[in-house]
Design a protein around this nucleic acid. Sequence first.
DNA 1: TTCTTTGTTCCGGA
DNA 2: GTCCGGAACAAAGA
Length: 287
Amino acid sequence: MPELPEVEVVKKSLLSKIIKLKVKKVKVKNVNLRYKIDKKSINSLKNKKIISIKRISKYLLINFSNDITLISHLGMTGRFYIEEKKKILKSSFYYNNLTKLRKHDHVVFIFNNRLKIIYNDIRKFGFLMIAKTSKLKNYTSFIKLGPDPLKNKFNFKYFKEKSINKKIKIKDLLMNQSFVSGLGNIYVNEILFKSKINPYFLASNLKDVDIKKIVKYTKNILLKAIKHGGSSIKDFHSFDGAKGHYQEKFYVYGKTGLQCSSKDCKALISKVVISQRATFYCPNCQK
DNA sequence: TTCTTTGTTCCGGA
DNA sequence: GTCCGGAACAAAGA
């Protein structure tokens, strides 16, 4: 389930492989993702060069020449993978052969050096969309996003001001993308565990010291996850098929009934549901 | 067949 | 008008 660290890892992989390449062809096998793919607009990528690749929250932005940007959100199970040329094939065969596609491959981008990038999405909750680079700031999904948790703007002062009147559970606040953008269920569970705060605790009741801990561990955990290539649970693999390894560092996510990892704590990790999301915590450490 | 999974949006009540 | 909780939605696998 791609959250900020996973999207950042995908961004870095894409940067290392396709920056400055030119699109030779786009093949759309299935238009029915979260939002229907507009074939005409996605075909406008043909002969355009990749200028830069960025991440906003959990969105991936691939900027092409001629003011075109491909916006992508991986949803639950979206991923990009790479297929490099293995042997010399007749180009007509190479560019048209779709028989080798795997199940749930939906879109194939073929570049001028014959490299292929394939978008695969089992649940089809992700999407690909074309926008004008110069108009990205007007894109409605971006307008309401809160600060990126890794940026300086996400700090104690911001958190305090925004949470002081929020009579909602701290877990719900961290999950709210207009408060801070990029966190998802997995990392919020982990952040609250490290901060020793109960997920049900009301945001307005947090003490300064609690807020400082949350801000610190948010950045800390995300950076560590990025360093480990993200978390490969369910369907996330990085670009070249390699898995991320941060899931091996989880303290509470998916650890129901296992002993808490804190020193000298014998409590078992609880699983409850908050806002229809699985929530894991240590009832002893997170009071 | 039913349940689980996630981010986002919408609706109703306070 | 604002805030908050809950439900709905997308699709597929176990």
